[in-house]
């Protein structure tokens, strides 16, 4: 097929240039498309933060707890019966179930194997082998802010 067109030199060169141009557009397209998509900010505008806002301070009643997501890990924020705020990793140290606050016992409880932790995160009863990791809590304006301890 190439030989047949070879007779008409300039015509063939035109076809070649046109073809080359089209391919070039394709190549540039496959470079520019990812760049354009990259420039559009993603839905989640920020990287996993070293701190998270755990809702309004006023909304957390005394002697109650709330589970919030810290990145992908759950954290439990508690307002103790004496009104102080504290936060712990909500992952039980026994078999990684998510713990909860028990207002009747006034401490943290894991439903899976009845593990108990006091309000300092210490494992006080049941199978948990270690205390819960503690997070720092501050109140900024209305919001409760949890910060990972480093």
């Amino acid at each position: 097929m190439g030989d047949r067109v070879a007779d008409t030199g300039p015509a063939r060169r035109d076809v070649l240039n046109w073809l080359l141009g089209s391919w070039l557009v394709g190549v540039l397209g496959s470079i520019l498309y990812p760049i354009a998509r990259y420039l559009v900010p993603p839905e989640l505008p920020e990287a996993a933060p070293p701190s998270v806002v755990a809702g309004k301070a006023t909304a957390l009643a005394t002697n109650s707890g709330r589970i919030v997501a810290f990145g992908t890990a759950p954290v439990i924020v508690i307002r103790t019966p004496s009104g102080e705020l504290c936060a712990f990793s909500a992952t039980c140290t026994h078999l990684t179930c998510t713990v909860q606050y028990r207002p009747d016992l006034e401490h943290i409880w894991c439903a899976c194997h009845n593990g108990h932790y006091d309000l300092n995160g210490r494992n006080i009863a049941g199978p948990p082998p270690r205390p819960l990791d503690r997070f720092d809590v501050t109140v900024q304006g209305e919001d409760i802010v949890i910060v990972r301890r480093t």
């Binding site: 990812p34 990259y38 989640l44 990287a47 933060p49 070293p50």
Partner: peptide, 26 residues
């Protein structure tokens, strides 16, 4: 998208790699 601080650098690169469209490619 990169943030040059010890507390955020790793997270921002992770963010580029996972959340930003074609960030992994770039």
């Amino acid at each position: 998208y990169y943030r040059p601080s010890a507390s955020e650098a790793y997270e921002s690169v992770q963010f580029i790699m996972t959340r930003v469209p074609f960030g992994w490619l770039v």
